[in-house]
């Protein structure tokens, strides 16, 4: 009931919500791309035992580790690795989700099978499930990507299943059925284009979870091998030096990981809002 609504106050007063949302998505996306590109360009972090275990300074803003490696470069490298793993895992999980959603919507038995599968996967603690899959696949990047992918398809499957069921009842699908088009043709031509945006947003929403779970299992020792420059490895290494007061070994890499996860979260949420304006009215 105020004269000047909330969105017209403050810093971005000249922008409307749509422009602000788009701007947020673009900026966060840019930051992530920069981190990713920088990370892939860092190939060799020099070791220098003269400068080992140094606290953060202007020369090494995140400090150095016990081999004198610069923690900032290690962190950025680790983040880019996290992004790659996260990307792989979320894409695979979205593919699984899409396939299962189509299966579920095709007939009653498959539908109850998929719901049973969802129940099954929801009944084992996530981390334990990821550990088990990763162990079964021999750990490493492949094991982690598959493990994270196979434990994160549940939510998107639920969303897509409902969506596909709804589209299936529409008139043009009924018409295509009458014209004798195959189920596969209808799925490909009519349904898939309509749920593509949902799949895209779903993939993005899985991303932060994927990154976090990858670093968690790697930290526990069930993910990437200790030779990889992953954040989980960095943090698990840091455990040995914490008692000596080398706080920077754990603090900055973890914070950086948090920020990356947060940025992915922000992109996902904003995109979701753009496609589904109901929430914005709240």
């Amino acid at each position: 009931m105020s004269e000047n609504p909330w969105y017209n106050k403050g810093l971005f007063s000249s922008l409307n919500l749509r422009e602000k949302t788009l701007l947020t998505i673009a900026l966060t996306g840019l930051v992530l791309v920069v981190i990713f590109i920088c990370g892939t360009m860092i190939n060799n972090i020099p070791t220098n035992f003269d400068t080992k275990m140094q606290a953060p300074s202007f020369v090494h803003i995140f400090g150095t580790d016990w081999m004198g490696r610069d923690m900032f470069f290690r962190t950025i490298k680790g983040l880019s690795l996290s992004i790659i793993i996260g990307l792989g895992a979320s894409i695979i999980s979205s593919i699984i989700a899409t396939i299962l959603a189509f299966l579920a919507s095709s007939n009653k038995y498959l539908d109850s099978f998929v719901s049973w599968l969802i129940d099954l996967f929801a009944s084992i603690p996530h981390i334990l499930l990821i550990m088990m899959i990763s162990i079964a696949l021999g750990k490493g990047a492949f094991g982690v990507i598959m493990a994270v992918a196979f434990s994160h398809w549940v939510n998107l499957t639920r969303v897509l299943r409902a969506e596909v069921l709804q589209i299936n009842t529409s008139e043009y699908v009924a018409l295509s059925n009458k014209f004798g088009k195959s189920k596969f043709w209808i799925a490909k031509e009519h349904i898939l284009p309509l749920i593509l945006s949902q799949i895209f947003v779903g993939t993005l929403l899985v991303f932060p979870h994927a990154i976090m779970h990858e670093s968690s299992v790697t930290f526990l020792g069930f993910g990437l091998s200790p030779h990889e420059p992953a954040i989980g490895i960095i943090l698990s290494e840091s455990m040995s030096y914490l008692a000596m007061g080398a706080w920077w070994l754990a603090f900055f890499p973890g914070l950086a990981l948090l920020i990356v996860v947060l940025l992915f979260d922000i992109i996902g949420d904003n995109l979701k809002r753009l496609l589904d304006p109901r929430e914005a009215n709240n």
């Binding site: 409307n16 919500l17 949302t21 809002r273 753009l274 304006p277 914005a280």
Partner: peptide, 10 residues
């Protein structure tokens, strides 16, 4: 009332 519709237009 002010409302947001598809694409966050006011």
């Amino acid at each position: 009332f002010t409302q947001y519709v598809q694409g966050l237009n006011r």
